[in-house]
Design a protein around this nucleic acid. Structure first.
Lengths: 246, 246
DNA sequence: TTATGCATTATTGTAGACATTATGCATAAA
DNA sequence: TTTATGCATAATGTCTACAATAATGCATAA
């Protein structure tokens, strides 16, 4: 039996139920790494993961091999797998590429995107705002729901172009950056006022001014990265002080 | 025992001897696909590959999973692995991204590269020219040696920047394009006079004029892609005619 | 011609044995 | 002390056989 032909909204159903175990393991591990449940540098021992997820070694190893190509896992011959380490240099590298590729993607979207693309943006923004309002009014901390809405909004902005590769790369880089955001977010739990920034971003994109849109996107990405970098430096500072106090 | 600390020149020694079987399988399969020994769409049956390479299923499957992330292999759940298909649309996509990323890489190289970078370019060009001269004088057809020199030259041009991710992506996209080149090259076996083009490219880069360098790089990549596209169209034409003549 | 059911085949997943390599620790040498 | 060396132990990678599941092709019925 094949998967039903109904279009799957990946933002709603996290994963189809009839996926192979490799795909499930891939999705689970990826999520755990991006969300920071598995920490940078952490050893990924097959037998432990096996018990944790109830999946045997072969599909796990295959999933881990896929993740190495996405810079989320490192594999060193005969020394097993690890969660990819993080560093300020790597963040820099990541953000630099993100800016280049997201500029390209938003420019292509503005040039090629139709009404459906614009509608996707408006819808995604609406849902993101709703969630942020809920968080503000109910004094809820940032949550998975917001992260998903946030991701959807950003991807919607870039989804108007034809290039599949570009879209995939942007998504991958976004998630890699998301991992950094989460790791550094242990400090500041509540949302900055990102809502205004996202509104400005959307307006620029919907006005179809490629220069303005690219510029605001760059600002947004760079500002976020700066916050993350500062948090990382602060953490390193704290860690260093704690160590030297011993 | 760890690998000796001597720097490995990947262009000389295709692969270290103490690599794991996953790495060997990965390298072998990748090569076979890029060189066109395994054709687009071809089924990759594990048991056949097992006999072919003398490597058991586990490392083979792991290697294939890595290759899926590079767009060289497709994996469809419960339907096994295939060599990634090719199409004019995909070529377009590929080349579009290549131009964006190689421009970025060459600009970064010009801004950040030092004498060592320039020396790498000159050396790579010298070796490429030597090989082309040999091919011309001895009436040898294009060969693996030339392909390697050609790759080395292009990568040298882009190797001056700090971004590791960018370099890796450029290399991956170059090889994906190389696969297209080889597949379409079955027609025209002898080298075009690329030598002059490469010289002009090198001169622009070494003059450290980022605009000129990016423009010549774009021209070069696009012209190559156009030749490939034309060859693909001709092949499709021929295939279509053959089919309708039945 | 178009469905349906069934047998066949291919793929995926599991388990456990085995070989190889890394690692930590005790001991010996500088 | 510090730095090597050798060995026991653990971790990793690989292989094999087999079980479970899904896809596929074909004969038959509608």
């Amino acid at each position: 039996m094949t998967q039903p032909a109904t279009p799957v909204d990946r933002s709603e159903t996290p994963f189809p139920t009839d996926a192979t175990l490799v795909e499930k393991a891939y999705a689970l591990l990826r999520q755990a790494i991006v969300r920071g449940a598995l920490l940078p540098g952490e050893k990924l021992k097959i037998d432990l993961l096996q018990k944790e997820y109830g999946i045997s070694s072969s599909p796990l190893r295959e999933a881990l091999n896929r993740l190495t190509a996405e810079n989320l896992v490192t594999a060193e011959g005969n020394r097993g797998f690890r969660v990819a380490p993080v560093s300020l240099d790597d963040l820099d590298d990541l953000v630099g590429l993100r800016i280049v590729l997201e500029r390209e993607a938003v420019e292509a979207s503005i040039a090629e995107g139709g009404d459906d693309w614009e509608a996707r943006i408006v819808a995604a923004f609406y849902r993101l705002e709703r969630e942020e309002k809920r968080i503000y009014e109910e004094q809820v901390p940032l949550n998975e729901e917001w992260s998903q809405r946030h991701r959807d909004f950003h991807m919607a902005l870039l989804s108007g172009g034809r290039s599949k590769r570009l879209a995939n790369m942007c998504a991958s880089l976004f998630d890699q950056a998301e991992r950094y955001r989460r790791l550094s977010a242990s400090v500041r739990k509540r949302a900055h006022n990102k809502s205004g920034e996202h509104k400005r971003l959307m307006d620029a994109v919907l006005s179809r001014d490629p220069v303005l849109a690219a510029e605001r996107l760059r600002e947004h990405v760079q500002k976020t990265a700066q916050n993350i970098a500062n948090a990382m430096k602060a953490q390193t500072q704290i860690r260093t002080e704690a160590e030297s106090a011993e």
